[in-house]
């Protein structure tokens, strides 16, 4: 059974055991527009919570993807690198960006659930 969390930077992280899968939210892809480029971290890289791990770019905007929790990159989704449009089509599913082995799952505590994130997005409109 996986648990789903959201960040104020519009990333989502789905956690199963000590592995977190990270992507950007539908809200984020709508506001960025058609994505044209995705840059993902190298497998094996250790990233501290709050640091940039990936970049997603549309024609007129570039956005860093931060990791909400510390960990080591164990897998990246090459499909989105080859076809960034996937992120626009299915941001919270097939277009996940990378997987982390979590260093400290307690860091998940401060994150939002879907309902809280929804409410947060509403305040931004």
């Amino acid at each position: 059974m996986s648990a789903l969390y959201f960040t104020k930077d519009h990333e989502w992280i789905s956690v199963e055991g000590d592995v977190g899968t990270i992507g950007i939210t539908d809200y984020a892809q709508v506001h960025l527009g058609d994505l044209v480029f995705v840059e993902l971290p190298e497998v094996g890289r250790k990233i501290a919570s709050g640091k940039e791990a990936a970049v997603v770019e549309s024609v007129k905007a570039a956005s860093d993807v931060f990791v909400p929790v510390s960990g080591e990159v164990i897998e990246v989704n090459k499909a989105v690198v080859d076809k960034p449009a996937l992120v626009n089509e299915n941001p919270e599913g097939a277009a996940w960006l990378f997987k982390l082995r979590l260093a400290d799952p307690s860091e998940l505590k401060g994150l939002m659930d879907r309902k809280a994130y929804q409410a947060y997005c509403n305040t931004l409109e």
């Binding site: 480029f37 770019e57 570039a62």
Partner: peptide, 11 residues
């Protein structure tokens, strides 16, 4: 253009 200053600013 996302490489450039008007979008990436200090990056």
């Amino acid at each position: 253009s996302t490489r450039e200053q008007h979008i990436r600013r200090e990056k």
